[in-house]
Write a protein that binds this DNA or RNA. Sequence first.
DNA 1: CTGATTGGTTGCTCTAGAGTAACCGTTGCC
DNA 2: GGCAACGGTTACTCTAGAGCAACCAATCAG
Lengths: 116, 116
Amino acid sequence: MSNHTADLVFDALGEPVRRRILELLHEGPTPVGRLAERLPVGRPAVSKHLRVLSNAGLIEHRSIGTRNLYVLAPGGMAVAQQWLVRTWDTVLAAYAADVSRASQQAAQQQSSPKHP
Amino acid sequence: MSNHTADLVFDALGEPVRRRILELLHEGPTPVGRLAERLPVGRPAVSKHLRVLSNAGLIEHRSIGTRNLYVLAPGGMAVAQQWLVRTWDTVLAAYAADVSRASQQAAQQQSSPKHP
DNA sequence: CTGATTGGTTGCTCTAGAGTAACCGTTGCC
DNA sequence: GGCAACGGTTACTCTAGAGCAACCAATCAG
């Protein structure tokens, strides 16, 4: 399924510089040199980050001559949001119920089904 | 601002073990020992990950005697979704498609650039 | 009180990966 | 053709952090 894709996406989003790259790309298509100018890292590091982001489906690149313009791609964000919603789905639905039930369990302190 | 909070959230989500913890907590409140049993790491590592997740607002913990039950918290997910939507706002406008609607449009087999 | 269980913390090792410098390939312009 | 500019890749170093073993603190049962 898209589980491994979610792994790639969140692993890519787990780095601050990569998030900054995405924020910079939010302004529009940008070549690598421009990104490196506005980032506290060099161009090789930016290239690596761009490769990771592209592999995760978060950005796309189009080669125009000797220049590569990078743009945001919606696929990665869709995967991330789907994972977030899927993980928190039942929690958001039954959040209040879990809270009150946990309080009752705290008072009773039972239901300890453990197995070696 | 909520920007540093987003940094905390995505940094917490950037680790595979932490994402597994969140998936396990999706099933309901769970103590630390139970998490360590189902994870490929020991209890000290789980404790550290739980601290990071709690610091990011992704989980909450409830001390019941000598047992600590951990549950998912909705605050962290809200921050993550807000950051995602904010970053991809322009892109979503450019593609003129919502995320959930993109799936339906993909089902209708429109000639749009899609990828697995 | 004593023993047992659960959870958290500390000190330590070790690996993944982030960053850089140097080099190479390609394209565009004269 | 020759030259400059832009990007990507490789080899290498170095640091952040993930993991574990051991120990400590707190709680409940008898």
